[in-house]
């Protein structure tokens, strides 16, 4: 577990350094390797964020599929917001609903909450145990089950494989 956290955090820090400097000289790569090694040893092994992702082939395929689903939902949500703002009668029907998630890991829940915020008409407000409270700009008349079906399901089936 610690080794996995160390390796993943080291690779992330090194990638950020290489993108920031955008040069492939030996001296700058050497400095990047040393600095990210020190940071990963001091802090990376304590951060749970890096250790909870699964490293199987299935998880990586799901990660790629999830990225495309996320980008598509982001574009859809922006067109939705733009149409609502430009409409003179301002068609909103807001309310706070409650949904249930099956994800267990903390990082998975964080990614789920961020995804909910960036999808059409929803904004995650609070989380208590396994219930997420979501501000919905156009509430349909339905209960916990159907709100969960409507908001969470499309991301959960990918995140369940990626984070477990």
């Amino acid at each position: 577990m610690i080794i996995k956290r160390f390796l993943i955090s080291f690779l992330v820090f090194l990638a950020v350094w290489l993108l920031l400097t955008s040069s492939l000289q030996a001296s700058s790569i050497l400095v990047g390797v040393v600095v990210s090694l020190i940071i990963a040893l001091l802090f990376g092994i304590k951060a749970e964020v890096f250790g909870e992702i699964k490293l199987s082939l299935k998880a990586i395929i799901n990660l790629i599929a999830y990225t495309f689903v996320f980008i598509w939902e982001l574009i859809k949500s922006n067109i939705d917001v733009a149409l609502r703002v430009l409409n003179p009668s301002l068609p909103i029907n807001p309310g706070i609903v409650k949904v249930k998630t099956r994800l267990k890991s903390k990082t998975g829940r964080m990614v789920l909450a961020n995804s909910i915020t960036l999808t059409p008409g929803t904004l995650s407000i609070d989380i208590k145990d396994e219930f997420l409270y979501v501000h919905w700009i156009d509430v349909k008349d339905c209960d916990l089950q159907c709100a969960t079906e409507e908001i969470v399901k499309k991301f959960e089936k990918y995140l369940e494989v990626i984070y477990g």
Binding site: L74, I75, S77, N78, V81, A82, R84, V85, L90, I92, P94, T117, L118, G121, L123, I125, H135, I137
Partner: peptide
């Protein structure tokens, strides 16, 4: 244009992220 804080946060966050 939005009438309360939560709707303003919705519009502000989404549009400014993709923009």
């Amino acid at each position: 244009r939005m009438p309360d804080v939560y709707n303003r946060i919705q519009a502000g966050t989404k549009a400014s992220t993709l923009g």
